[in-house]
Design a protein around this nucleic acid. Structure first.
Lengths: 120, 120
DNA sequence: TAAGGTACTTACGAAAAGGTATGCAACACA
DNA sequence: TGTGTTGCATACCTTTTCGTAAGTACCTTA
């Protein structure tokens, strides 16, 4: 299958892709699930210091709705819910790798002299 | 040169890379400059319907500070300022392509049934 | 009967991002 | 002297995002 993009549709496509990854904590969660890891809610909570339950569930739910994360509910008491990546979620790896590679190229390619510290 | 990433540093690296691309209009601007295009402020303004001058200059300035965009000032009256990508900025192409490819894989890989329309 | 563990939900407020509107400096031209 | 062009800067407001804190449902165990 082949796609042809105009400037606008390409920009829109990437924007939509980025929207799925934006949001505080999403990438941290993703990288904890990469590699086929299956983690409980409380595992993630413990693994990611500083995150609140609200944020954790919020980001997980969005990624689930977006088809990146799979949610597995075990009907027990006390409750047990596990999270892992979908195949499509796992397929993110090479794309993120490309970004990482690009970021690493920063020094040496161009005459970007200042350290360019962003103020957020 | 080789990097080894932990879950955390990889997530942080990607986060930092994404921060450079986040922000309304940035990708649209980028895709207008890809291919070595050199555009004036007013060209971009006209090329991107809906953008305000404030947003345009704001995003351009950030990308300039981040080393993605180069700003060329011609001291004339009326003023003439041109914008183009740095080499590093151009190097973004393959990474964005990887994202586009990933996004296009959505259907067919996994059992993501609903169209998953995001409410923004 | 009370305490505890798990996976959430909800209310509230601060901060950041984004949009609209207006102003300004410099000079050329009429 | 007044008007027009270009590339911004600034003030103000709305919307979205993020963080904190508290509460809930369910059943188990002491």
């Amino acid at each position: 299958m082949q796609h042809t993009y105009t400037r606008e549709t390409a920009a829109e496509g990437v924007e939509n892709a980025l929207k799925l990854l934006e949001g505080r904590w999403k990438l941290v969660i993703l990288f904890h699930l990469f590699g086929g890891h299956v983690l409980r809610f409380s595992d993630l909570e413990r693994a990611i210091p500083g995150i609140s339950q609200k944020m954790l569930i919020q980001q997980l739910r969005q990624m689930e709705k977006d088809g990146i994360v799979r949610r597995i509910v075990h009907h027990q008491v006390p409750p047990k819910v596990e999270y892992c990546l979908t195949d499509w979620g796992q397929a993110l790896c090479p794309a993120l790798d490309a970004l990482l590679t690009w970021a690493a190229q920063r020094e040496g390619t161009d005459g970007v002299s200042p350290p360019a510290a962003r103020r957020d």
